[in-house]
Amino acid sequence: WKITIYDQENFQGKRMEFTSSCPNVSERSFDNVRSLKVESGAWIGYEHTSFCGQQFILERGEYPRWDAWSGSNAYHIERLMSFRPICSA
């Protein structure tokens, strides 16, 4: 599993790669995730830290803005603060 997060939209700004769970992006000096690329595996992104709040399934691909992973939710969530890989047995 591999995911790359960015602190600006369209894959700009600070970037960081992960191959395992991140319970709080702010502990990695990110205020928020504004864009991301899922390089391999599937991940679950969460609205809040500690894997809480609205969940987003993140499959392999590029997500240049928050609405790319938020989709058409009843209330739009511009925040992604934690994530972890989906492990299959």
Score class of each variant (00 low, 15 high):
residue 1 W to Y: 15
residue 1 W to V: 12
residue 2 K to Y: 00
residue 3 I to F: 04
residue 4 T to L: 05
residue 6 Y to K: 00
residue 6 Y to A: 01
residue 6 Y to I: 00
residue 6 Y to S: 00
residue 7 D to Q: 08
residue 7 D to Y: 02
residue 7 D to W: 00
residue 7 D to G: 05
residue 8 Q to G: 08
residue 8 Q to S: 09
residue 8 Q to L: 06
residue 8 Q to H: 09
residue 8 Q to D: 09
residue 9 E to I: 08
residue 9 E to C: 04
residue 12 Q to E: 12
residue 12 Q to M: 09
residue 13 G to A: 00
residue 16 M to R: 11
residue 16 M to T: 07
residue 16 M to L: 12
residue 16 M to A: 11
residue 17 E to S: 13
residue 18 F to G: 01
residue 18 F to P: 00
residue 18 F to L: 14
residue 19 T to M: 06
residue 19 T to P: 01
residue 20 S to A: 12
residue 20 S to C: 07
residue 21 S to R: 05
residue 21 S to Y: 06
residue 21 S to M: 10
residue 22 C to K: 03
residue 23 P to V: 08
residue 23 P to R: 08
residue 25 V to F: 04
residue 26 S to A: 13
residue 27 E to G: 08
residue 28 R to F: 11
residue 28 R to D: 09
residue 28 R to T: 11
residue 29 S to F: 09
residue 29 S to C: 12
residue 29 S to L: 10
residue 30 F to L: 08
residue 30 F to D: 00
residue 30 F to V: 07
residue 31 D to W: 05
residue 32 N to M: 11
residue 32 N to T: 12
residue 32 N to Q: 12
residue 32 N to P: 11
residue 33 V to T: 04
residue 34 R to V: 04
residue 34 R to P: 00
residue 35 S to F: 03
residue 37 K to H: 05
residue 37 K to S: 08
residue 37 K to A: 04
residue 38 V to N: 00
residue 39 E to Q: 11
residue 41 G to S: 03
residue 41 G to R: 03
residue 42 A to M: 12
residue 43 W to C: 03
residue 43 W to F: 05
residue 45 G to P: 03
residue 45 G to W: 02
residue 45 G to R: 00
residue 46 Y to E: 02
residue 46 Y to G: 01
residue 46 Y to T: 01
residue 47 E to F: 00
residue 47 E to S: 13
residue 48 H to Y: 08
residue 48 H to C: 12
residue 49 T to H: 10
residue 49 T to G: 10
residue 50 S to L: 13
residue 51 F to Q: 03
residue 51 F to K: 00
residue 52 C to A: 14
residue 52 C to P: 02
residue 53 G to L: 02
residue 53 G to F: 01
residue 53 G to D: 02
residue 53 G to Q: 00
residue 54 Q to T: 12
residue 55 Q to G: 10
residue 56 F to R: 09
residue 56 F to Y: 09
residue 56 F to K: 05
residue 58 L to D: 03
residue 58 L to Y: 04
residue 58 L to N: 04
residue 59 E to C: 12
residue 59 E to K: 15
residue 60 R to C: 15
residue 61 G to S: 03
residue 61 G to H: 02
residue 62 E to F: 14
residue 62 E to Q: 07
residue 62 E to A: 13
residue 62 E to M: 08
residue 63 Y to G: 01
residue 65 R to Q: 10
residue 66 W to D: 05
residue 66 W to E: 08
residue 66 W to R: 12
residue 67 D to I: 06
residue 67 D to E: 14
residue 68 A to C: 13
residue 68 A to V: 08
residue 68 A to T: 11
residue 69 W to Q: 07
residue 69 W to Y: 08
residue 70 S to W: 06
residue 71 G to N: 14
residue 71 G to A: 13
residue 71 G to D: 13
residue 73 N to G: 11
residue 73 N to H: 12
residue 73 N to Q: 14
residue 74 A to G: 14
residue 74 A to K: 14
residue 74 A to L: 13
residue 74 A to Y: 11
residue 74 A to V: 12
residue 75 Y to Q: 11
residue 76 H to R: 14
residue 76 H to G: 14
residue 76 H to E: 13
residue 77 I to N: 15
residue 78 E to L: 10
residue 79 R to L: 05
residue 79 R to E: 13
residue 80 L to A: 04
residue 80 L to N: 00
residue 83 F to H: 02
residue 83 F to S: 02
residue 87 C to D: 15
residue 88 S to Y: 10
residue 89 A to N: 08
residue 89 A to R: 11
residue 89 A to H: 06
